[in-house]
Structures are given as structure tokens and as C-alpha cells.
């Protein structure tokens, strides 16, 4: 499995986590990442409004020649953006697992402040172990 990078957006569209899991990725400045997150949040809301079908959710998948981005939104409004290779299978399973790790190592950490940027070493470690197991 090749996961390029993961972003987590809080329910207001603020970027609370961003990490790369692959070498040689194009780097954005941290400010650009914040803008990207905010923009995506807006686009996601727009896509759900312009849908001709009643009750549709927003944008879920973005595909290009070189990557595929999956957006997984939880019922609480948190968004997980997973950037992977174009033909990565079972990406929904990966989303769920990342959500479980988030529930465990971020939300259950009593010193993590809800909606704030995630600085949890255990979350980093487990995410790395799951997304990039040592070959």
C-alpha cells in the first residue's frame, strides 16, 4: 500500500494535522496547507449544495493521473483526507482505520484539546506503523 499523505480537518475547516508518508513529495509551506484545507472545506460544502440529488454528501474522491484523494467525513464533521496512488485499493478501509487510530490516540488523550492541532506522538507512531510498515 502506498499512501502519500494524510490531512485532518476539524469541523470548521481548520487543518489540524498534516503528514507525508512518502519521500520526494512536492512540499507546500505550512501556510499553503492551511489555505488548501480551508479551500477544500469550502469546495466540499459547495459540492453538496449543487448536487441535483437530494441529500447527497460532498466531494469524496478526487482523481488525477498521479494521485487519488479520498475524503472521509465523520458524523461529527471531522474530515480525513487521504492522498494515495491512483489505483490504491480498499482506501475506505484505510480511512476507517485511520479514524479508529484518531479516536484512540488523539481523542482519548486527555491532554489533547479538541479542535486544536494534533501533536500526539503516539498517534504519529501508530499512523506511521499502519501506513508505512517496515519492509
Amino acid at each position: 500500500m502506498v499512501i502519500l499523505s494524510v490531512m485532518i480537518l476539524n469541523k470548521a475547516g481548520g487543518l489540524i494535522y498534516q503528514r507525508d508518508f512518502h519521500e520526494g513529495l512536492h512540499k507546500l509551506s505550512s501556510n499553503d496547507f492551511l489555505v488548501l484545507a480551508g479551500t477544500f472545506h469550502g469546495v466540499h460544502a459547495i459540492t453538496s449544495r449543487i448536487s441535483p440529488v437530494h441529500g447527497s454528501g460532498g466531494l469524496e474522491v478526487l482523481e488525477s493521473e498521479n494521485f487519488r484523494m479520498q475524503c472521509f467525513q465523520t458524523l461529527t464533521g471531522t474530515k480525513f483526507l487521504i492522498f494515495a496512488e491512483p489505483h490504491q485499493p480498499n482506501i475506505d478501509v484505510i480511512c476507517r482505520r485511520v479514524y479508529e487510530l484518531y479516536a484512540d490516540y488523539v481523542m482519548k488523550n486527555p491532554f489533547y484539546q479538541i479542535e486544536m492541532p494534533i501533536r500526539c506522538e503516539a498517534f504519529d507512531r501508530h499512523l506511521m506503523a499502519y501506513l508505512k510498515p517496515k519492509q
Binding site: 458524523l75 461529527t76 479514524y99 484518531y102 479516536a103 482519548k108
Partner: peptide
């Protein structure tokens, strides 16, 4: 509760 809900949703895979 604010925290536990995420665990609940992650474990049960419930829809709305």
C-alpha cells in the same frame, strides 16, 4: 462524551 463519540462512531461504523 465529546471524546467518546468518536470512539463510538469509529467502532460501530454507524450512519446517521
Amino acid at each position: 462524551g465529546l471524546r467518546l463519540i468518536e470512539d463510538f462512531l469509529a467502532k460501530t461504523n454507524m450512519g446517521r
